[in-house]
Write a protein that binds this DNA or RNA. Sequence first.
RNA 1: CGGGGCGUAGCGCAGUCUGGUAGCGCACCUGCUUCGGGAGCAGGGGGUCGGAGGUUCAAAUCCUCUCGCCCCGACCA
Length: 571
Amino acid sequence: MRYSQYLLNTVKETPADAEVVSHKLMLRTGMIKKVAAGIYSYLPFGLRAIRKVEQIVREEMDRAGAIELHMPMVTPAELWEESGRWQQYGKELLRLKDRKDGGFCLGPTHEEVITDIVRREVKSYRQLPLNLYQIQTKFRDEIRPRFGLMRGREFIMKDAYSFDTDDAGADAAYEKMYQAYRRVFQRCGLKFRAVEADSGAIGGSFSHEFMVLAESGEDAIVSCDSCEYAANVEKAELKAPAGVAPTAAADVSEVATPNQKTIEDVAVFLKLEPSQLVKTLLVETDEEEVVAVLLRGDRELNPIKLANLLGSNCVEMASEETVLKVTGAPVGFAGPVGLKVRILADHEIGTMGNFVVGGNAADLHLAGVNHGRDFNVEQFADLREAEAGDDCPRCNGKLEIWRGIEVGHVFKLGTKYSAAMNAVVLDDQGKERTLIMGCYGIGIGRTVAAAIEQNNDDNGIIWPLPIAPFQVLITLVNPKDEEVCKAGEQIYTDLQQAGVEVLLDDRDERPGSKFKDADLIGLPLRITVGARGLKEGSVELQWRKDGERRMLPLESAVEDMLKLVREGMQD
RNA sequence: CGGGGCGUAGCGCAGUCUGGUAGCGCACCUGCUUCGGGAGCAGGGGGUCGGAGGUUCAAAUCCUCUCGCCCCGACCA
């Protein structure tokens, strides 16, 4: 491609509403253009990167035995009513009416549609196992789209769905996808972790997320420093600490704590460490039950663990009014002694004694409190959020915390949709069996964003070779110089004929601007053709990665480049 | 949905308080010079000041309503 005939407008200034580096760089390089909140056009340069990732995904899906199809983006309400998600899905599901007033929605995911296809097409166990995938535009009316392609409302996703008659088959399908995902992200040149995840509202028995490690990631993940354990913090299990509560000492004593509402305040006020306090959180379930949860003062509640324990869809912190009603005190002074609601406690509380809690009255705390004697805990459980340095739940290692961008998610779904939608086949005994499903997603645009997030410097993007929009950039320092032009064009043509994707910067611009643009758009390999080098019969090769330059003899330049591209693609 | 902020040229912004010729930088077009790390000079094009209504001799500026966007929070396969 000739730059002079291409649409690739770069911008020096960073658009004001970009927060994260990948968004900034995608805007500055004109990869994407916002059309509405969370909705983008992919301009040619951006589209090329998207296509690269799509192609890698396609190849790995095919290799794993999945088959590509394409489903509609607009899907009828009936299917969603059948699975129950027409009601369950909130405002994220963008609902529409057609001219005949029929209900439709823009597909945020396609379990219903695929299940409908398979129940119609597949009648016999002999047609299984089956794994079908598509690469398609999805729409989720996110409350707050942000970070460019990282969290859009409209986005490109690869979604695959597996169908099996038994658990062993379903597990094998899951494992195949898990391995395919590892290959995809490896091939994209990304540093990532596959972590255990909460399976959330989509249901199902187990699930892994593929996280690209990046500071700007929206998720926190833990990984063990000595074994393979890795999990989303939402899911990260924690061992119950060893040890028993110390013997209860003196009686409970009341301590005046005027206006000391937070754990920090109280700890400073009483000259104690936050870890010597116990905090009492009042939460409300979606069935409007209020529950008290006890945690060590310096710990954070993991609401997902609590929701799972309570078998509730979601739990929320109780409102100020509720707290006042239940404890008789304003927020900040809740404590377990004398409370009339269910009391749950994190395992750690079991090893604590003679601690400080809220006094259920304004400006009052209680010291020397012990569970069992002063109040009863209904159940001890793993309820707190993992922190760096916590013990690994699987071995003797310690947990580290990373931030990650979720680029892929694999779920074992089980029969949630097949049962609701009556997707069954006959087995070899002629008996009906409900299909066991798995679903597997990859955010294509998000993967591109994550790649940029992970590969950039002050000057711009540093594309990993396998997903770079072009593999090579040839810069003609002065396109008006006949020699320069001739040499550059020759290399350009030869490389293209050898199948290399080349961008030829033949623009009549000053060299300085061209070099700046070259850094910004970040193509991995760069050849600079200038009069200076040509005098010695050579051109300059530079890697964007490390800036390392060396001269290549004109005669062997094409050959040398071909070798580098091939080697680079195999990494 | 709660709190905060912003809508003026393609992008980044000033002008709004205190009403009176719509401005600056980048980008774009023309010419000359320049040419291996975002050149200089000269000239030029581009705006219903988010929209509607109102106040006024006069509104980007004041008032009312409305739409959109951004940030923080809650939420999230």
